[in-house]
Design a protein around this nucleic acid. Structure first.
Lengths: 132, 132
DNA sequence: GCTATTACTATCCAAAAGATAGCGGCACAT
DNA sequence: ATGTGCCGCTATCTTTTGGATAGTAATAGC
């Protein structure tokens, strides 16, 4: 019956139409990961986030923050001054998630060498195939 | 100094060139999430995985499994019979990750209603803007 | 021969991500 | 008075990725 796979309330992320599936889709983004992790220790401004996340474009940063705001993970606060000042912070729900995402991030950092090796082995095998 | 943000070995997922960043990129996929969760309870065949993950195309399934294999999270075993039989199972590294990803999946299932509400509120607010 | 089975490939199209440039509005320097 | 800088975006274009659909290989059974 796969009883362990089903959540108590009948939500099942494997089903495409299940709300939890769309939540998983939202979480499955490296910028979501990093943004939530970045905000974990407190509120940050747009520019601070941009500087912290190397390689993010303004478009992706805004897009990511809007999604997180829409889903109730991030709160956006605008100060009506010139030049503009906008601050972002995690909601309670966001903080709750941040713990988990930080674990994933830590896992990625801890196991990066191992995975790098696996990738090297894989491409070595691939090259060997090409030669033989 | 952000000392809490840096991993003990100097890996930092916020830096684009850091190996851990590419690991995070690999993990940031809903099919990776679901595939690893699906394999958590034991080995499965390609067709079994396809049936379990509603909406996945053969192309994405193969692609996802190849990436997981390349990175040492999944082991692929081919039985040379007709019709073909191929089985996939998690490696130790994969099992290790599966625990974390299952937590994310559980989180998604638990908080799906909450997030659904937040989305509804957001689009209600948006509509209100349009009317006023 | 013809069909069924299984695990994939190949191709094409749409959607998303990424790169680059520009805007608004005011303070301050020239 | 014109010019420059600040900051948080928005608009546009290109490239990459994802998704839908159809087809392949190899053999057993009818």
């Amino acid at each position: 019956m796969d009883s362990e796979d089903a959540s108590p309330l009948g939500y099942d992320a494997f089903r495409r139409t299940c709300p939890s599936h769309t939540v998983l889709e939202m979480l499955a983004s490296k910028w979501v990961y990093l943004t939530v992790c970045a905000l974990r220790r407190g509120r940050l401004r747009n520019g601070e986030l941009a500087r912290k996340m190397e390689g993010i474009t303004p478009k992706m940063l805004t897009q990511t923050l809007r999604v997180l705001e829409r889903d109730g993970l991030v709160r956006r606060q605008v100060f009506p001054v010139i030049p503009p000042r906008v601050e972002y912070e995690l909601t309670e729900l966001g903080q709750n998630l941040a713990g988990l995402l930080s674990q994933i991030r830590s896992w990625a950092e801890e196991h990066a060498p191992e995975i790098k090796e696996a990738r090297a082995r894989a491409s070595a095998d691939h090259d060997e195939m090409a030669v033989s």
